[in-house]
Design a protein around this nucleic acid. Sequence first.
DNA 1: CAACCGTACTATAACTAATAGTACACTTAA
DNA 2: TTAAGTGTACTATTAGTTATAGTACGGTTG
Lengths: 135, 135
Amino acid sequence: MFELDVRSRQPIYEQLIEKMKEMIVRELWQPHDQLPSVRAMAKQLMVNPNTIQKAYRELERDGWIYSVPGKGSFVAARPKEPNAEAIAAVHEQFIRLVKEARFLGVTNEQLWQWIIEGEEEEENNDSTRRRDENV
Amino acid sequence: MFELDVRSRQPIYEQLIEKMKEMIVRELWQPHDQLPSVRAMAKQLMVNPNTIQKAYRELERDGWIYSVPGKGSFVAARPKEPNAEAIAAVHEQFIRLVKEARFLGVTNEQLWQWIIEGEEEEENNDSTRRRDENV
DNA sequence: CAACCGTACTATAACTAATAGTACACTTAA
DNA sequence: TTAAGTGTACTATTAGTTATAGTACGGTTG
């Protein structure tokens, strides 16, 4: 699935949040897919269940997953209405990054190329987009 | 100049690094401009000199500023050769951010708009580019 | 009922951030 | 030469965060 670097300066729970976001963004995890339980994930990644729980809690707070006590945790449905708050947060980071890139000599054409590259990779994952939305 | 949020979850020295990078990227601070001394900056921002020193140390390590013992700290010259390492780091963050934005429903056209917006703002700063706008 | 599930606690150790203070070598100007 | 200001490197302490360990409770499922 993915691996964590327990020696990293970045906290484990933050690494986990990023990895799980990536699985959802790349649609390797589909809406309403059941996630590994807190205890199972802890066992698999060999970290403490409380650390997993912390990551799950933040992901739920930000709308990436939802949890049902007694049943499990699941990938959230993709919001139909654009999430203005989330987009604003990404926008702010994006602007800051573009300025830094431009300062380093990266041209707009190169930035555009970076955007296109990501899109091509995403299209390769289209085969998985056919959804079986059971559960 | 700028302000810090001492109550933020983000460490003070990290906030300071970001703010100073922004001053350099937006060219409000020019190469070889002298920066406020560690002690002066600490006094102005009302934080501990050691915290300032930590930020300066990292900025120097990453090539944003340079320090001369006994003289002071200064904005580094813009590297003539593209800094491949720094660009790669920005590229990685950029890709991750684009994917998240696209997941939130942001189109390529909007991403391009975000890039252009930043460029227009930068051009507006061109008029101030001749003045010594320090501290 | 038994075995799962999420969730909420307490407690502890390790690490980091921030502060306070001291010291030293260097540069500059009086 | 002296005094003030500079970066830099330490020690020590406090506060907060991270990760661990363990316990407990209610809901769900077979």
